[in-house]
C-alpha cells in the first residue's frame, strides 16, 4: 500500500501543533517543536551572512547554515522515525526505501516549510532530486530586501536534501551533499534540490 500523504497530514495535524497548556513545550514525534515566523527564521540567517561581511564570505557562511540543517534532518527525522507516532501511522505501510522517503516527505509537508511536490530517488547512484513550491524563504527574503535574490537562498532545504540521503542510506551526517539548482527567490515558482555522495568533507564539491 502506498504512503497516503493526506491521511498522514490529517493524523499529524490531529495531534495538535500547540505547546502544552502548562509548560508551553511542544513535544511531538520524539522532538521538541516551536513555531517561529518565517521572517525570523530567514532573517537570522541573513543577519549572519551580513555580519560575516556579506558577499565575500557568503559561501562559507552558507555552509554553516546548510550544515546545521543537514545535522537537523538526520537527527530530527531519525527521531521522528523512532517515535511511537511514526511506528503507528506510517511504518506499517513502508515496504522499501522509496516508501520511507515518501513518508518523510509527508511529514515534512506538515511543518509549514512549503511543499515538496515532486521527488525522485535513484537508489543505484544514491542521488535525490526534489522540488518545492512556496518555500518559506522566498517571500521572507522579498519582504526583507524588496527584490529577487541574485543567488539561491533556501539553505535549510539544501541541508534537508542531503540529510534525507544520510538517513535513508544509514550513513553518518555529511556523507552526502546537496545544492539548490533552482530557486524561486531568483525567479520562477519552484525551488529544486539535488543531493549526491560528497567527494570532500563539508560539501565543497
Amino acid at each position: 500500500m502506498a504512503i497516503d500523504h493526506d491521511s498522514i497530514r490529517n493524523a499529524f495535524l490531529g495531534l495538535g501543533l500547540v505547546g502544552d497548556q502548562q509548560s508551553g513545550i511542544l513535544r511531538r514525534f520524539g522532538v521538541i517543536l516551536a513555531a517561529n515566523t518565517s521572517d525570523f527564521l530567514v532573517g537570522r540567517e541573513f543577519d549572519l551572512i551580513d555580519s560575516m561581511g556579506g558577499e565575500p564570505s557568503r559561501r562559507l557562511t552558507e555552509r554553516v547554515l546548510i550544515d546545521a540543517a543537514q545535522w537537523c534532518a538526520n537527527s530530527t527525522f531519525q527521531g521522528i522515525m523512532d517515535s511511537p507516532e511514526w511506528k503507528t501511522l506510517i511504518e506499517p505501510n513502508i515496504k522499501n526505501i522509496q516508501d520511507r522517503l515518501s513518508g518523510l516527505v509527508a511529514i515534512t509537508n506538515c511543518l509549514g516549510w512549503g511543499k515538496i511536490i515532486d521527488w525522485h530517488l535513484t537508489e543505484e547512484n544514491k542521488t535525490l532530486y526534489f522540488s518545492v513550491k512556496y518555500s518559506y524563504y522566498v517571500d521572507a527574503y522579498k519582504r526583507r530586501y524588496g527584490k529577487n535574490s541574485a543567488f539561491p537562498i533556501c539553505y535549510m532545504w539544501t541541508g534537508v536534501a542531503a540529510g534525507y540521503l544520510d538517513l535513508l542510506f544509514g550513513t553518518s551526517p555529511n556523507t552526502f551533499t546537496a545544492t539548490e539548482s533552482n530557486c524561486s527567490a531568483i525567479g520562477g515558482d519552484l525551488c529544486a534540490f539535488e543531493a549526491k555522495l560528497a567527494k570532500t568533507k563539508f560539501g565543497f564539491n
Binding site: V31, A35, A68, C72, T76, L111, G114
Partner: peptide, 22 residues
Amino acid sequence: RSVIKLGDVEIAYHCDKFNTRI
C-alpha cells in the same frame, strides 16, 4: 500549499535539533 499562518503572518515549525544546531 503546506503553509501555516498565525493571523496573516507565515510561521513554520522547527525542532530543537535544528534550532540548537543553528
